[in-house]
Amino acid sequence: MKAESPLVELRLWRQFAAVAETLHFGRAAARLHMTQPPLTQAIAQLEKLLGVRLFDRTKRSVQLTEAGAALLPEAQALLARARALPAQARAAAAGEAGHLRLAFVSTAGFTLLPEWVRVFRAEHPGATLDLLEATGDVQLPALERGEIDAGFLLHSPGFAPEGLAHLLVAQEPLVLAVPESHPLATARTLAFPKVLAEPLVMFPRRILPSLHDAVFALYHAAGREPRVAQEAIQMQTIVNLVSAGLGVAWVPDSVRQFQRPGVVYRTFGGAQAARVPRCETTLAWRDSPSPVLSRFVAFARRQAA
């Protein structure tokens, strides 16, 4: 069985570094505010623990051995990290440092997320953001299990997840993504009867139930049943399938940022616009947030305002 490495106290490394940097036991002892005999004993103890000689000593000089020279930069780095620990602890307690696991739906990635991440990192350089793109059906169990700290979720107005703290950060209407070659792409005005008759590219209900139901309610109110030609999970994929001519799609207005060749985004005007479903983006997190998450929530409140 391999012998365990000796546990060396930080005090011994500090004493070793002082002697190695001054190459003089007397000056090193003065720097450490101690007398020379205990320092000599401490270095002997360290050499015994390590099983190597760190210094070549004569009556006139002290020199580092090869082992001592190799250890010096590592010991200096260790001591520097130790000196930084109190400030790091205070920063973590204040939320200025720490690790934040943040999930987001693809629509947040089109608009608010890039700017928010840039500004938050600039304001809190000690905080680390770990970003994960995930749909709502993935985020909610991950929040429950503590695998992520917070997430940006998409839903219909008023359908923020229960049992979670949440903050509304954006509202937007749905727009119609249409194949560029389709007559609806160039029609002067859009009429619901023609739009609702088209095959539909749609996200599955399991990933976004409230918005899925809102779109279906639009069709049912007009006495029609949606003709779902194809389902896809990501909004980018939905738009790509529209460009392939598989149908039209209702997508959040922020998806306009995804300028896919072969796709035109159309909106409704006048009284028809009031019938188009809207959607909301919410930041959700579990109660009792960590300090760094509290910082991010406060930041999100300012940005959303």
Rank of each mutant, 00 (worst) to 15 (best):
A97L: 01
E66W: 04
A44Q: 09
S106M: 06
E96W: 06
L72P: 05
T107V: 14
L64S: 08
E115A: 14
A122F: 00
F120I: 08
Q63F: 05
E74G: 06
E115P: 02
A92S: 14
L102N: 04
T111N: 14
A122M: 00
H99C: 08
A44M: 04
A122L: 01
A122K: 00
L112I: 12
V119P: 00
A42I: 08
V52S: 08
T111C: 06
V117G: 02
G68A: 13
A91Q: 14
L112F: 12
P86G: 09
A84F: 03
E115M: 09
A82T: 07
A91I: 01
T107I: 09
F120Y: 10
T58H: 10
V105M: 05
S106T: 06
A84Y: 03
F104I: 02
V119E: 13
G51Q: 02
G109F: 02
R90E: 15
P114T: 10
A103N: 07
K48A: 12
G51W: 02
G68F: 08
S61K: 13
A87T: 11
I43Q: 04
P114M: 10
A108H: 07
V62E: 00
Q63S: 12
L78S: 10
P73C: 01
R121I: 04
S61C: 04
E115C: 00
S61L: 07
L79E: 13
Q76Y: 03
A108C: 12
L64R: 05
L49K: 09
L72I: 13
A80S: 14
A70K: 15
A108P: 03
V119A: 10
A122C: 00
A89Y: 12
E123T: 03
L46N: 02
A80K: 15
L46C: 05
W116M: 06
